[in-house]
Design a protein around this nucleic acid. Structure first.
Ligand SMILES: [Mn+2]
Ligand SMILES: [Mn+2]
Ligand SMILES: [Zn+2]
Ligand SMILES: [Zn+2]
Lengths: 140, 140
DNA sequence: AAATATTTTGTATTAATTACAAAATTGTAC
DNA sequence: GTACAATTTTGTAATTAATACAAAATATTT
């Protein structure tokens, strides 16, 4: 929790109680939560937390590059405290979002370019969709 | 237009007037249009077209793999009649969505896998964000 | 032509996100 | 420490993309 404070500060984000709680949640829960999920989880410890604060904070985190804003789920935005290069997979059956790291997908890192032709790149999102192992084995 | 009919039929889609007009529009306009843009464009020639039909049809096209549903734009879904493997780039300044093909990004095709570990893949979406050449040169 | 299945349409609803301004908190100057 | 300014948080209202639903229209089969 103390390190969360320094982490935010070092990225130019003033570490308020709300911001630390939200960042902390993202760092501890690598489930790619939605705004609703984060909100419900934090409400017990931050009873006055407003959704607007949550939206503003997550936008801020994304701008300052301490969180990823994922558009993999067509219904809602999801967030990720892990900003290292990695891809995502969403199961169309259970809706779960899973990480795909370089060991599973060696080509991955080479897609993180700063420039492609004339285009200046600031972020990359690689999204797979399909059926996860758990759901595929349900019809047995 | 006649070939559009066969194209839909061969993909198991009954070629109604609305469906042909929508598919036709996607094949002719490689601008990654939103639902609103498609609707406005088709309204003059199909005055009774309903948004519900448009949403249903685009969902059908996506399911039948004759169109891509793009989540690159966080505000709204965009559609693409080009279903060949390619990546996309959205300019954060002008909002335009551009194609990135294999000649610009040779690693691209190798990401289109059918399986990654235990995960069965049915689609891939690769989205870059940044600033396009036109917008980068505006501050001169 | 009658019966059946499919597609289209219009309206109402849902739900994620944004806009906005007041209230609260924090930081700075004296 | 009080006063003032800047920042952050909050609650409410508004927006808007997307979906639900059932009636109307159209196409297909018998
Ligand atoms: Mn992740
Ligand atoms: Mn494209
Ligand atoms: Zn699953
Ligand atoms: Zn641009």
């Amino acid at each position: 929790m103390e390190q969360t404070k320094d982490y935010l500060s070092s990225h130019g984000i003033r570490p308020s109680a709300q911001r630390m709680a939200i960042m902390d949640y993202l760092l501890k829960h690598k489930t790619h939560p939605t705004v609703e999920e984060i909100y419900s989880a934090l409400l017990p410890s931050l009873p006055t937390l407003s959704k607007t604060t949550l939206y503003n904070t997550l936008k801020l985190f994304s701008d300052k590059k301490v969180a990823l804003m994922l558009n993999i789920d067509e219904h809602t935005t999801r967030f990720d405290g892990d900003v290292k290069p990695h891809a995502h997979f969403q199961c169309q059956v259970c809706g779960g979002v899973y990480d795909i790291f370089e060991d599973e997908l060696p080509e991955l890192t080479s897609l993180y370019k700063e420039q492609i032709g004339e285009l200046e790149i600031s972020s990359v999102e690689i999204s797979y969709r399909g059926v996860c192992a758990k759901c595929a084995n349900k019809n047995d």
